[in-house]
Computed example of a mutant assay.
Amino acid sequence: MRTTRQPDPADPRIGASLFSTWRVGTPERQAQTVEAIERAWERRGWPARELLGYHVYTGEDGDTLLHYSQWASEGAYESFVKTHRQERVDEIDTAVPGIERVALHRYRHHRSRVRTDGPVPGCVVIVDVEFEGADAERSRRWADAVFEALGSEPEPPPGGISAHFHLGTDGTRVLNYAEWESAGAHADALAAAGDGIGPAASAWRRVQEWPGLKSSTVRRYEHALGLVPDGAGR
């Protein structure tokens, strides 16, 4: 069933959070691909009770699509790949040839900060961080340091709703799924902050200069499609 509700990354039932990126080339192909995904999924039964939700987002760049699926376990996802994934992929590729599937990464939710009075998000910001080499403890400590830096700000940035930190299961990545009132609110916060959102304090410098930090990217998306098991509610 299609849902208009935004996903809850902190849902305690989630044992595996999967994020993947596709490149499709143009805004027109973004829309066509979202429609093809919806058709490929809605004409088939829900593949597994362990799949709690599947969401697709269109990138502000007019090229990318972000996929976010919430699973009870990684094993349930592996079973889906063996039995149900390929037929959906084939149908989508037939409808929109030439999709580039960039990467899929597996995460577990770590911790969240959420406004209690937050409105419905108009924009999702993905902060994707990669480290040199696998070190799960380093990833966790970095995510905690960012969390503390956010908490050290005298006032939260206008328009910010939530920040959901995820740790990569391979020990090399951290992903922050952040909800904002709008893309404009996030852009304004970045412009006002200079080096990161918030004052240029020692806490933020520590995060930015963390040993082993390889890369950090920030991309804005809009929620385009949400699919949940029938009966999960709209």
Rank of each mutant, 00 (worst) to 15 (best):
P9D: 00
R13P: 02
S17M: 08
L18T: 08
W22Y: 13
R23Q: 13
P27K: 03
E28H: 07
T33W: 04
I37M: 12
R39N: 10
R39D: 14
R44P: 05
G45A: 13
W46V: 04
W46Q: 02
E50W: 04
L51K: 01
Y57L: 08
D61N: 14
D63P: 01
D63T: 02
W71R: 10
S73I: 12
E74D: 12
E74C: 02
G75F: 08
E78L: 14
V81N: 12
V81R: 14
V81P: 01
K82H: 09
H84A: 15
D90P: 06
V96N: 02
P97S: 06
I99T: 10
R101F: 09
A103R: 15
R108I: 06
R108A: 05
V114D: 09
T116L: 13
D117K: 10
D117M: 06
V120K: 03
I126G: 01
V127L: 11
D128C: 09
D128N: 13
G133P: 10
A134Q: 08
D135V: 04
D135C: 00
D135T: 03
D135M: 03
D135P: 05
A143P: 08
A145W: 06
V146Y: 10
G151Q: 08
G151C: 00
S152N: 13
S152R: 15
S152M: 10
E155W: 02
P156I: 10
P158W: 08
T169S: 07
A178Q: 07
S182F: 07
A185E: 09
D188W: 07
L190D: 06
L190W: 12
L190E: 11
A193L: 03
A200L: 07
S202N: 11
S202R: 14
E209C: 06
W210I: 07
P211K: 05
G212F: 11
G212D: 03
S215N: 11
S216H: 04
T217H: 05
V218H: 02
V218Y: 03
V218E: 06
E222H: 15
L227N: 04
L227V: 05
P229I: 01
R234T: 07
